[in-house]
């Protein structure tokens, strides 16, 4: 026991290491497939509309979680998004200095849900609530349908 042995350096405790090698191959799902395809092929965001409560959701999804019915109507969002909130990241998840990187939660008028992404702005101070933003996309030939097909959002 490290505490009883008065070991202050954990590596002096008698222990051994092992690892559990796991790798995941996810499917995008029925709605996720169409969302990703629209992003890859046309560089646009696909949303779904509930026929009952009329809510439009982004990203597109299979069912309305409130009305619990399948959503068959989809629509691509043509208008720019807007900044709902934002932050500046200075360290990464292992605690290393990383940044500054400006991140925003982007929403779309009349649509439920949003997209978190990098903001292509010179400085934090130039971001404001409600600011209109549009995605900067990779070339169509380089897009894979991943969210990283978007390099960042920039002011519209």
């Amino acid at each position: 026991m490290p505490i009883l042995e008065k070991i202050t350096q954990p590596l002096q405790a008698r222990h051994w290491t092992d690892s559990i090698p796991l790798e995941f191959h996810y499917t995008a799902g029925v709605a996720g497939e169409s969302f990703r395809r629209e992003l890859k092929e046309n560089g646009r965001f696909l949303s779904s509309k509930c026929a009952e409560c009329k809510t439009t959701y982004i990203p597109a999804r299979m069912f309305c979680p409130s009305c619990f019915i399948e959503m068959k109507e989809t629509r691509t969002l043509e208008e720019p998004g807007y900044i709902y909130s934002y932050t500046t990241v200075n360290r990464n998840r292992t605690g290393e200095p990383n940044g500054p990187l400006t991140i925003g939660l982007i929403r779309f008028e009349g649509v439920k849900g949003g997209i978190v992404h990098k903001l292509d702005v010179k400085e934090h101070g130039s971001v404001s609530f409600g600011m209109k933003v549009v995605p900067i996309l990779k070339e169509a030939s380089e897009r894979t349908g991943a969210l990283t097909d978007i390099l960042a959002f920039r002011p519209a």
């Binding site: 995008a28 799902g29 029925v30 299979m62 619990f68």
Partner: peptide, 12 residues
């Protein structure tokens, strides 16, 4: 063996 549906979609 492998379904396209996500866990949320299978549950639905």
């Amino acid at each position: 063996r492998r379904m396209l549906e996500t866990p949320k979609e299978l549950s639905f």
